[in-house]
Nucleic acid binder design. Structure first.
Lengths: 205, 205
DNA sequence: CTTGACTGTCACCGGTCGGTGACATAGATA
DNA sequence: TATCTATGTCACCGACCGGTGACAGTCAAG
């Protein structure tokens, strides 16, 4: 067994993956290329072709990293569907705002459709769907009288868009997204929207 | 006066502007460059520098075109703030979905911050703010008991994100955005959210 | 007719891109 | 020791990019 060689290989693989994450999260998808990643990793670009089969394979390996789309923890106690969803949305928005790499990928998916974006999006979709399963297990099925998937999609879409806007244009619809106060307002507004869409059956607290 | 020369100049200016809109709306911001626009316009790229001072000036001239961010018409009859806002959001989403160029610009703004995106975004912001003024004039001030700007920003952000998603990934949060039925559901869900956020004071249907 | 300003074309520059082949080196195997 | 395989480096290719200077044609003004 050539132990040291394998170790070296894995080490450079990791270095390349780290560099890829760094380049993508800092420079966006416009900077994400073989040359830039190799430069950031301090190695030759040919290794990207050898170890990952090119940019596409590199993106796929990047997407399979578990630390990319960490789902925020769900509340421990079972509550009503509406409450769980509100809590979930709040945590998701906060997590997303702090996840530079995730935001870059989300933005990339809005600009281009390519094998690379598909590879990156697949991991995210898997995480999100698992997460929704967790909600369902915790809070039971959504109320049957309203279209919960559509409601959730709208609120999730809003969270995505606002988080992406924050990085590139501080202003959206008259709100200054650079102010922490604005985000408090948005969190409250989102809570209000979700709470009124999923009203509590019994006046409980 | 050298009439014909001026005419030629304006004609090529228009040809370049048309080509720029075509390149940007079809190929996205990755294709939007001096070479590609000149190629599409059938002229030399040096004219872009001479007539617009480069890509930035071209983008600014493009943003000043009135047909870019046409605001949908508002309902004629004054109604409650909530109703006007619901109607407005529905029309806006429909208009945006049909506006390929606008969507490309919106997506671009999520990826890059540059003088070009600023120039393009300025025209849009002006249109949107005028439009909100129209709503206010038609429906009066929003209810004071809830944070209307935040609510509106969320719903607007959702519309943006869903419209952008449609072009590049048919699936979002488990919904198939390629189905017309899905968009009916989303429109209804948005209506429900807005209606419950802006409840009618008197049951007046 | 001559001058001069303007429109438009062309060739060229340096730089970066993605991608590939040749080569040095080191470690395991025989 | 000699061989083979795999890791990593380097130089190079063609293509496209943004940007510029030189030049031809054209028309109005003197």
């Amino acid at each position: 067994m050539n132990k040291t060689l394998e170790k070296d290989r894995d080490a450079t693989r990791d270095r390349i993956l780290d560099a890829a994450a760094r380049v993508l999260s800092q420079g966006g998808y416009g900077q994400f290329g073989v040359n830039a990643v190799a430069r950031a990793a301090g190695c030759d670009k040919v290794l990207i072709y050898r170890y990952f089969g090119g940019l596409e394979g590199l993106a796929q390996a990047l997407g399979e990293r578990l630390d990319l789309w960490v789902a925020p923890e769900l509340p421990a106690l079972p509550e009503s569907y509406g409450r769980v969803m509100i809590e979930m949305l709040g945590r998701y928005l906060a997590a997303l705002r702090g996840n530079a790499l995730g935001k870059r990928i989300l933005a990339w998916e809005l600009v281009e459709t390519s094998p690379i974006t598909k590879a990156l999006g697949a991991a995210k979709s898997k995480t999100i769907s698992k997460w929704f399963q967790g909600v369902r297990a915790l809070a039971g099925p959504p109320p049957s009288d309203i279209d919960a998937p559509a409601i959730n999609a709208i609120l999730l879409a809003a969270a995505h868009h606002l988080a992406l806007r924050e990085d590139h244009d501080g202003d959206f619809a008259g709100l200054d997204l650079t102010l922490p106060e604005t985000w408090n307002r948005l969190q409250q507004a989102m809570t209000l929207l979700a709470a009124r869409a999923y009203p509590e059956g019994h006046a409980h607290d």
